[in-house]
C-alpha cells in the first residue's frame, strides 16, 4: 500500500468547482474577425480557451472573465460584455 505522506496534488479539472461562476465580465468571440492566430489560447491564464482542429472555443464553465484574451487579440475579435 502506498502511503500518502507528503502533500502533493495532481492536475485536475475543476478542483474548486466551476470557477466560471466568479465571472463578472464575459468574453465573446466574433467569428468573422477571428483569424485563429491562437494568441488568446496561449495567453489564457485559466486554460479556458479550447483548441480544436481548426477553431477555438471558450469554456465558460471555467472562464473567470479576466479579459486577457480580449486584450491580446490582434484583431479585436473578442468583445467583453457584462455577465447577465
Amino acid at each position: 500500500m502506498r502511503e500518502k505522506i507528503v502533500p502533493i496534488s495532481t492536475p485536475a479539472k475543476g478542483a474548486v468547482g466551476k470557477t466560471g461562476f466568479w465571472r463578472t465580465f464575459k468574453p465573446i468571440i466574433d467569428r468573422e474577425k477571428c483569424i485563429k492566430c491562437l494568441l488568446c489560447w496561449l495567453y489564457c491564464p485559466e486554460g479556458a480557451i479550447l483548441r480544436t482542429d481548426d477553431d477555438i472555443t471558450i469554456d465558460y464553465d471555467y472562464c473567470k472573465g479576466c479579459g486577457i484574451c480580449a486584450n491580446e487579440c490582434p484583431r479585436k475579435a473578442i468583445e467583453i460584455v457584462l455577465e447577465r
Binding site: V16, T19, F21, W22, R23, T24, K64, G65
Partner: peptide, 8 residues
Amino acid sequence: GAERRGAP
C-alpha cells in the same frame, strides 16, 4: 479562502 475577485 480564495481571496480573488469574483470568488464566493
